[in-house]
């Protein structure tokens, strides 16, 4: 008996993954796993690269057949940190064929429930970071922010700040993934940290004063008689504190 696992490979992108899954479903192939090109195969793996062309038509297919909501769920699962996210999207797709847009009410199915949970978690983290992200003003007037989210949510933040800070130059860096989103007052683009060098990391003259004003406000707005650190940490988990101005000690401020 053949014990090797068939693992199908795709070219990193969401589009590539969707085209691969479409192909697998059309040919009634049930994969043991789906991974991107970085996957380190072990002895028993049988890695298969179908080299499916990246056709944008697949996006419309999904929207037309299942609705835009289903596409959004798949996209958010894709951006998550989940180990088997590709396989979850594959099975979620299969159930979407059966239940169409009503698949989101089929929480009794394990995979569907999982996909919905992951999608919600990714959306929640994106929403949280719209609040928790902190820009510093660099000496060349660029606003610069670093973050280390669990999920790859830089695209949601970029869309948000493109609208909000449309007349500023800004750069957001996902430190965990080494990706930067660079906005030039017209549009943002994503670039690998190895391919982009910041002109300066020195902050503007005003930056320190403004940070001190903010820290003063932060301290004074709290009501001591109501102190509730557990509640604070529930809403603003400690894992984010490193990049939140008011939660850092003055002497550990990065990018001076």
């Amino acid at each position: 008996m053949n014990k090797s696992k068939s693992i199908f490979l795709y070219n990193y992108s969401f589009l590539s993954l969707l085209n691969l899954i479409k192909k697998l479903i059309q040919n009634k192939i049930v994969p043991n796993d789906i991974k991107n090109y970085d996957y380190q195969a072990n002895l028993f793996d049988n890695t298969i690269n179908l080299k499916v062309p990246e056709d944008e038509k697949v996006i419309n297919d999904i929207i037309n057949h299942f609705g835009v909501n289903i596409l959004n769920i798949m996209f958010k699962v894709f951006l998550s940190n989940e180990q088997y996210k590709e396989l979850i999207i594959y099975y979620f797709w299969l159930y979407s064929i059966k239940y169409k847009n009503k698949v989101v009410y089929m929480r009794n199915l394990k995979v569907v429930n999982k996909a919905l949970k992951i999608s919600k978690y990714v959306g929640k983290e994106a929403h949280r970071l719209k609040g928790f992200l902190r820009f510093s003003e660099l000496e060349n007037n660029v606003l610069y922010a670093e973050m280390a989210p669990e999920n790859n949510i830089i695209i949601f933040l970029s869309m948000h700040f493109k609208k909000r800070l449309k007349n500023e130059f800004w750069i957001i860096k996902d430190v965990k993934r080494g990706i930067l989103s660079v906005y030039n007052k017209k549009d943002y683009f994503f670039i690998n940290e190895n391919e982009y060098k910041l002109l300066t990391k020195n902050v503007s003259n005003e930056e320190k004063n403004i940070r001190n004003l903010w820290k003063t406000f932060y301290k004074n707005i709290s009501i001591n008689e109501r102190k509730n650190i557990r509640c604070q940490m529930n809403f603003m988990p400690k894992k984010y504190w490193q990049y939140i101005t008011e939660m850092r000690d003055d002497n550990e401020e990065n990018y001076k």
């Binding site: 929403h127 949280r128 719209k130 609040g131 928790f132 948000h160 609208k163 909000r164 800070l165 007349n167 932060y218 707005i221 709290s222 009501i223 001591n224 109501r226 102190k227 509730n228 650190i229 557990r230 509640c231 604070q232 529930n234 809403f235 603003m236 939140i244 008011e246």
Partner: peptide, 21 residues
Amino acid sequence: FGNTSFSGICHSFSSDGRCIS
């Protein structure tokens, strides 16, 4: 300069656990 978010956004939480928006 700037816009609003219909759902509202919490930017921080003070040590009393209340949202700072």
